[in-house]
Amino acid sequence: MALAAAALAPGFRDPVPDAQGTFRAVMEALARPGSLQRLATLPAVPEPLPPELAAIALALADHEAPLWLDVRLAAAPAVVDWLRFHSGAPVVADPASAAFALIADPAACPPLEAFARGTPDYPDRSATLVLAVAELTTAHGLILEGPGIRGRALLGAAPLPNDFAQRLERNRAGFPLGVDHLLVASGRVAGLPRTTRILGVA
């Protein structure tokens, strides 16, 4: 009974504008790495699903765009049911077949090689990793350079895997193949597309 009730808990309050607003924030975030974009409307979610991950899943996932959940989320049947019910997206066990990976425990994010990186002919057939972090700031952190950035930008997030900067650099070196990252916290989203170079830490 608990599961059925969770599955019936509402998704977006007003699905059309809420999905548009969420998409627009994600688009701006990927177009301007190092900027924080506001996710204006967050759905009420079953624990332990971070509402920012839920909003992005509802806005962008569906039967053509499967979700992969990290261990923390996959272990919560209420989360899996809620996402399945509201997005209609398959929840897959193999990260390589996911369009979006929802990661609530970012420090334990699997290596990027576990996800789809596209093919030389179709580099777009690649995953977007959405990491819910505790802190997100543009005051300090990784020094970013690349398309979408005027000069240089800063982006700090925690917690993350210790080798996150190296992962991003390796990812960028494989361009045009690669995965793209979204980092979310406190109703904000930041984008790290595969084109972004990491110059160091400040």
């Binding site: 699905p15 059309v16 999905a19 548009q20 998409f23 994600v26 688009m27 990927l30 177009a31 806005a59 962008l60 996932a61 569906d62 053509e64 765009a65 369009a99 580099p123 777009d124 690649s126 977007t128 398309p147 979408g148 361009f175 045009p176 793209d180 597309p193 595969r194 084109t195």
Partner: peptide, 18 residues
């Protein structure tokens, strides 16, 4: 809405692969 999601996903990958 399904069409918009499909187009939006294409736009995001287009932005990521200029």
């Amino acid at each position: 809405e399904q069409t918009k999601r499909m187009i939006r996903r294409a736009i995001l990958k287009a932005v990521a692969i200029p």
